[in-house]
């Protein structure tokens, strides 16, 4: 009982050194870092969207909008403070602290937008959320495209590139941890209950609106964090990175992974991000220097699409259904009165 407090932060304490070592070991591999960062961001997006679409059974298709809010908010914040240093800290540490604050700021602002969007639309059942989030995503994009201070269509440049493998994957790990702990708590069960049968959940005393809004806020927060991290390793953020297509990419990831399965969301996010890159390697090898090499690159996206269609035909419930990797762990049987 007295050592119970360690349970909470334990996974973080385990993963932090591993990621630190990995980050240190890969400093000379810029392409790996970039790819891993993009993948990490997609993992955060997929896992966070899965909280709303998979676990709570709602249907949001404007995740890129929240990502954009986080990206621009954090990017603007970081850029404004690019020349600021905290007195008591060395420059590198100070930069990282400001970066952390920027990421949290981006997440919080996205969460606030999530609350404002979610509260009116989640009171209602059905597809209202889909429509409202779709509209929200577009509004944000158009707003960014027309705002002088945010660089209009050209985008926001000059954001200090302070992100690292450690930051991105630590955030991804935290997102997964949050998703997993929510699901295994009694509160998370209420979310699952809403997914299964909203009327029954309400009748069993679950404040369905409240829960849906909370799930949506948490999801938006992490979308904002993903955007904030994104803004700190891509040289320019631009409204065209946060279109409806991006939202749909995330939806595709969680559907392909199995709606409701965090494991599925993580794995498909990784696979679907790396697949086009891998195809690039496969397709260009053996076609060195010829015209073919230049043309095959265009084939990547059709192949990617065909893979998705094949997956959905062969496994309509997604790769994992609603199962999780940690379901394999032996269930700890709490002592209970035998009947």
């Amino acid at each position: 009982m007295s050592r119970e407090w360690i349970k909470g932060p334990l996974p973080v304490l385990v993963v932090l050194p591993i990621l630190s070592v990995l980050t240190y070991a890969t400093t000379d591999m810029p392409f790996f870092i970039y790819l891993a960062s993009i993948t990490g961001v997609n993992v955060i997006l997929a896992v966070s969207l899965n909280i709303v679409n998979g676990i709570t059974g709602q249907f949001s298709i404007g995740h890129a909008g929240f990502m954009a809010v986080g990206a621009y908010a954090a990017g603007y914040f970081s850029r404004a403070l690019a020349g600021v240093q905290l007195v008591f800290l060395p420059e590198v540490v100070s930069d990282q602290v400001i970066f952390l604050v920027a990421v949290v700021f981006g997440g919080m602002l996205a969460a606030l937008f999530g609350f404002l969007v979610g509260l009116p639309s989640l009171r209602l059942r059905g597809d209202y959320l889909a429509i409202v989030t779709l509209g929200f995503g577009e509004i944000i994009r158009v707003f960014l495209q027309n705002t002088e201070a945010l660089g209009r269509a050209l985008g926001l440049r000059g954001i200090p590139q302070r992100s690292s493998l450690l930051a991105v994957w630590m955030a991804a790990f935290l997102t997964i941890l949050v998703a997993r702990r929510i699901v295994s708590s009694s509160h998370g069960r209420s979310l699952l209950a809403i997914r299964e049968d909203e009327v029954a959940a309400e009748a069993m005393g679950v404040d369905t609106t409240g829960y849906k809004v909370r799930a949506f806020v948490v999801s938006s927060f992490f979308a904002g964090v993903a955007g904030a991290l994104f803004a700190h390793f891509v040289p320019i953020i631009n409204p065209s990175s946060f279109t409806f297509v991006k939202s749909m990419e995330i939806v595709v990831m969680i559907v392909a992974g199995g709606l409701g399965s965090t494991t599925g969301a993580v794995l498909t996010a990784i696979i679907l991000t790396l697949l086009p890159e891998q195809l690039r390697t496969v397709l260009t090898s053996g076609a060195e220097g010829t015209d073919l090499a230049q043309r095959v690159d265009q084939l990547r996206m059709p192949i990617y699409g065909a893979t998705l269609v094949a997956l959905m035909l062969l496994r309509p419930q997604g790769l994992f259904g609603t199962r999780e990797l940690w379901d394999l762990w032996p269930r700890s049987q709490p002592k209970a009165s035998d009947p």
Binding site: P30, F32, G155, I237, G289, M301
Partner: peptide
């Protein structure tokens, strides 16, 4: 020597451009 060009598609997206760029330089 002959010249050869390695072409990468960026789907018109800035983040893909940065990605392709990193790949061209590093790989």
């Amino acid at each position: 020597k002959k010249l050869a060009v390695r072409v990468y598609d960026n789907q018109g997206k800035p983040e893909e451009s940065a990605n392709a760029m990193t790949r061209l330089i590093a790989q």
